[in-house]
Computed example of a mutant assay.
Amino acid sequence: MEKTNPMSLRKMFVLGAAVVALGVAAGASFAQTPAQKATIDAAKAQGVVGEQADGYLGIRTSASDPAVQDAVTTTNAARARAYAASAAQAGTTPDVAGARMFESQLLPRITSGQWYRNAAGQWVQR
């Protein structure tokens, strides 16, 4: 049986706490305007936008409104900053922070009918 490194467990805990403290668990809406959040929520409901396994939003369809593209870009930039900050505190990478956020916070919140991109790169409807 492989022994768990207590330091790696500590880093995982710090990473999770840091991401939550940065507000990413609240939907990463801290850099969005209310209008951008509403735009993303509507786009998710229409199947245009979905969460991705890397912790970022993705645009599923090629014909998306410029307001949707802007809202996704704004949200993803805020998430990138949050993931970088939490990764630095935990001694890991922003990619790991984003993937962990997807698994622990974003995926469980995807409602029936919404789309997400899994780790294999496939769009899946819940």
Rank of each mutant, 00 (worst) to 15 (best):
V68S: 02
T39G: 08
V96A: 13
R60G: 00
W115Y: 08
D65N: 14
A38N: 10
A18G: 15
P108N: 12
T39R: 05
V24K: 02
R117G: 02
R79A: 13
L106W: 02
D95A: 14
K3P: 01
A43F: 01
D65Q: 14
A90Q: 06
V49P: 01
E51M: 11
F30W: 00
R100Y: 03
S64Q: 12
G47T: 05
K11L: 04
A82S: 15
G91T: 03
A84N: 11
A99Q: 15
L22D: 11
G23P: 08
A97K: 03
L22H: 12
F102R: 04
V49A: 01
V96N: 04
F13V: 06
P66Q: 02
G55Y: 07
Y83W: 10
G121Q: 08
A71M: 10
A82C: 10
G16K: 11
R79F: 13
A77M: 03
D95K: 12
Q36Y: 06
V14H: 04
A99L: 05
P94W: 06
G113Y: 13
K37Q: 12
P66V: 01
M12W: 09
Q52A: 15
E103T: 13
R117C: 04
V19H: 03
A71I: 08
G58R: 06
A26M: 12
T73A: 15
G121V: 07
Q105P: 02
I110T: 15
S62E: 13
A71T: 08
G16D: 14
T4S: 14
A21C: 05
T4N: 07
G50Y: 01
Q46M: 08
G47C: 08
V68R: 03
R79E: 14
E51I: 05
V124Q: 09
K37M: 09
A67F: 02
A120T: 01
P6Q: 07
L57E: 02
Y116T: 01
E103C: 04
